[in-house]
């Protein structure tokens, strides 16, 4: 091989190395594990989208009807929910706030922790950061995989979080699922809907999607602002970079 070709090759190598690293990093990110939590099986896609305000409003209603009895959102103020979900103070205080808290105060469940510990073995967790910690898909799947289990002290079990301490709070909506076990083992193969609830399976999935969506919003209310401002920041930076590039080109005429 002649020298020039070797030179060209090594330069080519240099020019390829950086893109290769960028690609490798890209692959790492693409292959990132979803928020993993304890539990078995494949997670279902929640389809949560915090830009869907109607879904957030429905999810909030579900949360305050079915969850707030036990679970707090201690980092979330009623007033912020009103602002972000396009609700009035009147609507929030009348339709969502059943605890008598003030409008500016955070969402705190009325259940005394000592009682909760007595009833469920442990205090129900605060759900402010549940989706940040476990992922929207996990919470969605969890809410769809409760089944009747006579062996459990609370009568319910869950395939996503086996031996969950929570009795299924949405049973009257989904109905009662039972487990179909694999022949010759205790492993759950699939869940069958034994007694339908008030909602059809499709309606129930939509309801839990809304609820998870609301919890995703609660995990990071700033996401709404992020998306709003982000586009403008990127456009501005693109303009700046373009100008800087033209300026560089102009000055470097001296060098080349």
């Amino acid at each position: 091989m002649t020298k020039p070709t070797l030179l060209t090759m090594s330069r080519l190598l240099m020019k390829r190395l950086l893109p290769a690293i960028v690609l490798a990093v890209g692959l790492l990110v693409a292959g990132q594990p979803a928020a993993r939590a304890e539990g078995e099986g494949q997670l279902m896609a929640s389809g949560a989208n915090v830009r869907d305000q109607a879904s957030l409003q429905r999810g909030a209603r579900l949360f305050f009807n079915y969850c707030v009895g036990c679970h707090s959102l201690k980092y979330m103020r009623y007033s912020r929910i009103a602002d972000d979900l396009g609700l009035t103070e009147q609507q929030v205080m009348h339709d969502l706030n059943f605890t008598g808290a003030k409008f500016q105060e955070p969402v705190i469940s009325h259940m005394p922790p000592e009682d909760a510990t007595k009833w469920f073995g442990k205090a129900p967790p605060d759900l402010s950061l549940e989706v940040s910690a476990k992922g929207a898909d996990w919470v969605y799947t969890y809410l769809n995989t409760f089944y009747l289990d006579p062996k459990s002290p609370i009568g319910w079990n869950n395939t996503t979080l086996p031996n969950a301490a929570m009795p299924f709070p949405l049973w009257e909506l989904q109905g009662e699922q039972v487990a179909v076990t694999k022949p010759g083992s205790d492993g759950v193969e699939k869940l069958d809907l034994a007694h339908p609830g008030k909602l059809t399976p499709a309606q129930y999935q939509q309801a839990t999607r809304d609820l998870v969506n609301f919890l995703a919003y609660v995990s990071e209310p700033a996401a709404m602002q992020r998306h709003r401002y982000g586009v403008w920041v990127l456009l501005f930076l693109a303009l700046f970079t373009m100008l800087a590039y033209l300026l560089k080109k102009e000055y470097w005429k001296d060098v080349h």
């Binding site: 700046f240 100008l243 800087a244 033209l246 300026l247 102009e250 000055y251 005429k253 060098v255 080349h256």
Partner: peptide, 17 residues
């Protein structure tokens, strides 16, 4: 670097940036 520097363009781009 023998071409004449376009000072106007240079000043404009500097101010714009």
């Amino acid at each position: 670097a023998n071409e004449v520097v376009d000072h106007g363009r240079r000043r404009f781009l500097t101010s714009a940036t």
